[in-house]
Design a binder for these strands. Structure first.
Lengths: 249, 249
DNA sequence: GTAATAGTGTCTCTCAGACACTATTCT
DNA sequence: AGAATAGTGTCTGAGAGACACTATTAC
């Protein structure tokens, strides 16, 4: 049987119905706090509960589907403006039978790192979407609580060996802003002086713009130099988290 | 509409047909070489070409489906004997439209680390399966070449910060055997003395059995002490690869 | 002036890597 | 005996973290 004959005889209906969705763990930092985008479900199941934004995959790549969902729920134009700087990567796929009571749903979860985005417009499609502090998000629909937890852990780990912290800030940023990203994601303050020296010592992490902020900090201090993201894809050597000895085993 | 009414009105047929499969990048070390399990496809599309073992997901978790496929293709009993020591983890999900010419297929790829397994029996179900050096595997069906490449890179990275090298060796092993794993996966020889000291200095990586091998090496040398895997889930500090400065950017 | 912050200097401790060396075992 | 390997000792350089210090700016 050649390939054409095979295709003609092939009936997709022979296979059990499975739905494929994408869910997005979209993270940003607002007011110095790590926040995640959640939507309030209007329909059963889990009507009224908070959930990760997501939906069915259409005739598109999985990456495109995730980006589309993110655009829909934030009410922003995909690929332009604030959304063009979003870092999007696949997290993990969740497909336990029974995770959705309606039918077998296999969900490809994505992790998104975004600079501070505007609040979803109350009037738009994204009416039900809200940014919520990640630490206090609880009682999510489906298995989204677990997905969020694994997304957060991935985010924390990624900051160590990748330059993705820059995805949380604007195109130009100060070292202090970058440090605030690490502090928010890791939930720990970092020593300002050592952090400063370390960031500048990693090749390709940041590059100087030659300019400084227009004014100093709100409560004093000199003007800070501005940097933009460098061309490194991995940090070498990495910025390791303060050791959490007990989480090793 | 409450949840029960919703379920009753719900028709899976309303959604476009998508098939979900698992594909497994099963790695082992045989004769000091990193090898991957491949199957020869008997049917179109890509008849006669080599592919990763895999198949449709049934009424089971994704992890169970991957383990089942691995068991089927190796001809071994799942969960017993050699297969019980296999490390299995999700790699990434591939779902580009057109990656399978028959229909939309979303494939959840898994990565498996196995100690040296017996050759698949020529007479069994796994007739078409062969262990092939990973470096020379080429011209795979579908997008399996890309999946294999990403699996290999994940495996190389995992050895740095996880104790999974022990999944490639037997329950008791010498430091030299462990070093051979690293050398095979990274494709680089490692300094015996430094490797030895480093492995023993990482808490929880290996623990001594108090015994030694029955005899020395094939070409001389003292008897080596035997170790088993420790209880660490991450290596801290990690065993870093010899720096590959050019792959950073 | 006072407080806060940006950025740099310095010291110590740890660890990776290079190299050397001894002890043990096989052929 | 000769060769190969297991395991340890030692030195050096790089880097992380603690601490101190200066310079600059807001209020």
């Amino acid at each position: 049987m050649d390939e054409q004959a095979f295709l003609a005889a092939y009936d997709p209906r022979d296979y059990p119905a499975v739905a494929v969705t994408v869910d997005v763990v979209a993270l940003t930092i607002r007011d110095g706090v790590l926040q995640v985008l959640l939507v309030e479900r209007g329909e059963a199941p889990f009507a009224g509960r908070l959930a990760l934004p997501g939906g069915f995959v259409g005739d598109e790549t999985l990456d495109d589907a995730a980006l589309r969902e993110l655009a829909e729920e934030t009410g922003l134009q995909p690929g332009t403006g604030a959304l063009s700087r979003v870092h999007l990567e696949q997290l993990k796929t969740y497909g336990d039978p029974g995770r959705d009571p309606r039918m077998r749903v296999v969900s490809v979860a994505y992790l998104a790192f975004a600079p501070s985005l505007p609040d979803p417009r109350p009037g738009g499609d994204a009416a039900g979407a809200v940014w919520t502090p990640a630490a206090t998000a609880a009682d999510l629909a489906f298995d989204h609580g677990r997905i969020l937890a694994e997304g957060l852990e991935r985010a924390r780990a990624k900051l160590e060996y990748s330059p993705l912290a820059t995805a949380f800030v604007g195109p130009e940023f100060t070292i202090a802003e970058l440090r605030a990203v690490y502090a928010a994601v890791w939930g720990e303050d970092l020593h300002a002086g050592n952090f400063h020296r370390k960031v500048l010592s990693v090749p390709g992490f940041v590059e100087s713009t030659g300019t400084t902020t227009a004014r100093g900090g709100e409560r004093g201090g000199p003007r800070a130099k501005l940097y933009r993201a460098g061309d490194a894809r991995v940090l070498h050597p990495p910025l390791l988290r303060p050791t959490t000895e007990d989480t090793i085993r």
